[in-house]
């Protein structure tokens, strides 16, 4: 009889087969992992972007391949008052709407971060404007701003008796511009409020308690604790919000289509009108390309504002 002792037996070393060896081979792995991502980026991002930029240097029209015309499209736009009006309104729209969204969104977030009754219900309600498809809410605003059937006019005339004539929201330049901004703010608040609320909830309550004992007033707690600790997330949310607002299309297109007198065109809607509705693809593309510097500026802002602050480096504090 043979006695098998522990030392007679050696654990079989698993021999990796060719597939396992291939996946252990780093150059192969790099290529295999990058290909899908790069492919997707190329097909869905780089190609359309490149095509757009190329189109902006041609005189392509719908149904006719254009020729390279250099900077002609841009030169034409520079002397086009309608283009400058769209640039102005895009910047104005973005600035005012972002300010409004952040003022109201931060206020709501601070409110919801306190103990309020029916908190989860309130949070769900607040998300509503964001969940509703944009076109649907645009239609709702269209009704709200209707020259005859506006509920605001009805309230002012028939209920409160403070006006004799209906409000004129969309048929004169500045009221139309402000009305669109109001609609955009309404739609944008949930995103800001919920993101900032998430940020607020990461701030440890004991910091507020410590500050309370240190003798702070409510305003000082906001200024010295809430605001600086919220700043990193505020910067991200603001960058996104600026980009979304600047490139807005649906609201304006559905409510005013750029009118009255083309005064509410954003760069995106003007590009669409010239390029698709008007058929001047080259010119439309040029307008769209002109948005790029603004978007790059917003991204740079985020890059620098988001750079990890010194106090965020190192181990966590808990």
């Amino acid at each position: 009889m043979t006695v098998t002792t522990m030392t007679d037996w050696t654990r079989a070393r698993p021999q990796p087969n060719w597939l396992a060896r291939l996946f252990d081979y780093k150059p192969f792995l790099v290529v295999a992992c990058l290909t899908p991502a790069l492919g997707l980026l190329l097909v869905f991002l780089t190609y359309p972007l490149g095509l757009g930029i190329w189109l902006s240097f041609t005189d392509t029209k719908i149904g006719r391949t254009g020729e390279f015309v250099g900077l002609d499209n841009f030169e034409y736009l520079l002397s086009d008052p309608q283009f400058w009006s769209a640039v102005f309104y895009s910047v104005f729209y973005t600035a005012v709407a972002t300010f409004g969204k952040f003022a109201l969104g931060l206020w709501l977030a601070l409110l919801l971060n306190n103990h309020v009754p029916f908190k989860s219900l309130l949070r769900a309600i607040i998300l509503l404007p964001w969940i509703v498809p944009t076109v649907l809410s645009a239609l709702a605003f269209w009704w709200l701003y209707d020259p005859q059937f506006s509920i605001f006019s009805y309230l002012a005339i028939d209920i409160l008796h403070i006006r004799k004539t209906p409000f004129d929201f969309l048929s004169t330049i500045w009221p139309a511009r402000w009305s669109l901004i109001a609609a955009n703010i309404w739609r944008g608040i949930p995103f800001v409020a919920i993101s900032l609320l998430a940020g607020l909830q990461t701030i440890s309550p004991s910091l507020y308690e410590a500050a309370l004992l240190d003798g702070s007033t409510a305003w000082q707690r906001f200024r010295y604790i809430t605001f600086p600790l919220l700043l990193p997330i505020l910067a991200i949310v603001m960058t996104f919000s600026i980009i979304f607002t600047f490139t807005d299309f649906q609201l304006v297109y559905a409510i005013t289509r750029g009118g009255p007198l083309n005064s509410t065109h954003l760069m995106a809607t003007l590009a669409f009108q010239r390029g698709i509705s008007g058929g001047e693809l080259g010119e439309g593309a040029a307008i769209a390309v002109a948005m790029i510097p603004f978007l790059v500026a917003a991204t740079l802002f985020s890059y620098f504002a988001l750079a990890r602050r010194k106090w965020q480096q190192g181990e966590a504090n808990d």
């Binding site: 440890s204 004991s206 910091l207 308690e209 410590a210 500050a211 004992l213 240190d214 003798g215 702070s216 007033t217 000082q220 010295y224 604790i225 600086p228 600790l229 602050r309 106090w311 965020q312 504090n317 808990d318």
Partner: peptide, 26 residues
């Protein structure tokens, strides 16, 4: 009254000096 918390509750965005001086800043 001054309190030392279990998790210390130091203000993460302030230096040690500012943390200690916070009550006086206020």
């Amino acid at each position: 009254i001054a309190m030392v918390f279990q998790n210390y509750a130091l203000y993460p965005h302030m230096t040690v000096f500012d943390n200690m001086a916070f009550s006086m800043t206020l």
